[in-house]
Amino acid sequence: MTQEILLSDHAESTRHNAAPKVVVFACKWCALIGADAAGKNKVQLPVNFRVIPVECASRVEADAVIRAFSSGIDGVAVMGCHLGGCRYNNANHRAAKRLELLRPLLDTVGIDSRRLFTSFGTAHEHHQFADVIGEFYRRLQDLPPVQAWSRSNMNDYRRGDT
């Protein structure tokens, strides 16, 4: 991920704060079932989210999240099974840890880490999925627009660190 991409694409995405663009990486054993059930029950959801099914939440690498932000997406949600209930021998537990490690990195480059939403086992039922999506939407709407990455962000971060 280069600095140019982050700079160029974010300017556009910040304009649509009322309807933030969200990508949901949904574990097919849990959140995808929740999303499907939401459809079956015809729960009305905000329109601007796209679901990308993944085998396991652990498939979602830091790069995919950063790539999503750099292609102008306002929020990334990673939804997996509850911790301890992973189909893949607790792979989601490690994914949860990895995604937490990603947060300071996002903050450093000027993307509020609250734009990365993780849910483990909280989106399996249709109403849960709807609640989680709604919660994330409200959070994104309240957040200030994404600041393009700049040297001063970096300096702020460094000062805060020392």
């Binding site: 663009k21 990508v23 796209r50 990308i52 993944v54 498939r59 790069d63 790539r67 999503a68 292609s71």
Partner: peptide, 15 residues
């Protein structure tokens, strides 16, 4: 079946 390029292209196509 779900390589990085695929995820990247899907993200680009998402909006």
């Amino acid at each position: 079946e779900q390589n990085a390029l695929l995820i990247g292209e899907m993200l680009k196509a998402a909006f």
